[in-house]
């Protein structure tokens, strides 16, 4: 005959098994896009990460970064922190302009075209998201 504790443990083991399986099932559709993984690998290996600047690294996954930046922009605009809006907008415009110049210069670099074209299109898309969000807020 089992003691109450044993029964409880068996019950917990079964519950744990169900929770674990169900949790993995809930997340099963979440995966890393191939092009993102390839780009990450290119950053790590081809260029040599030691030689990669922080700015390049941050642009490794521009759409994801753009979404993060968009939330941060929203937080700053909504929280009414002690950053005057004109200063924020001017600084933001300068950042976007600089990023566009960098992105365009990448577009001019033709080797290897597939990688650079992907980066450029993703960067433009990401920046368009930021500009659109800031414009809506204003």
């Amino acid at each position: 005959m089992m003691r109450g504790d044993d029964t409880e443990n068996m019950d917990n083991m079964e519950i744990d098994r169900i929770i674990s399986a169900r949790l993995k099932e809930e997340l099963a559709e979440l995966y890393v896009r191939d092009e993102w993984a390839s780009e990450m690998m290119r950053q790590m290996v081809d260029d040599g990460v030691e030689r990669t600047s922080g700015a390049d690294e941050r642009l490794c996954n521009p759409v994801s970064r753009a979404r993060t930046w968009r939330r941060r922009c929203q937080s700053i605009l909504n929280a009414e922190l002690e950053i005057p809006l004109p200063v924020f907008v001017t600084a933001g415009a300068a950042v976007v302009a600089t990023a566009l110049i960098i992105a365009t210069s990448w577009q001019m670099t033709a080797v290897p075209p597939s990688v650079h074209m992907w980066r450029v299109s993703e960067s433009h898309h990401g920046m368009a998201v930021i500009v659109q969000e800031v414009a809506i807020k204003l």
Partner: peptide, 17 residues
């Protein structure tokens, strides 16, 4: 999801380094 992608990207780059 987006922050998780950032964490993974930064984590793998840090591991490589």
């Amino acid at each position: 999801r987006d922050l998780a992608q950032d964490a993974l990207q930064d984590g793998l780059l840090a591991a490589y380094r």
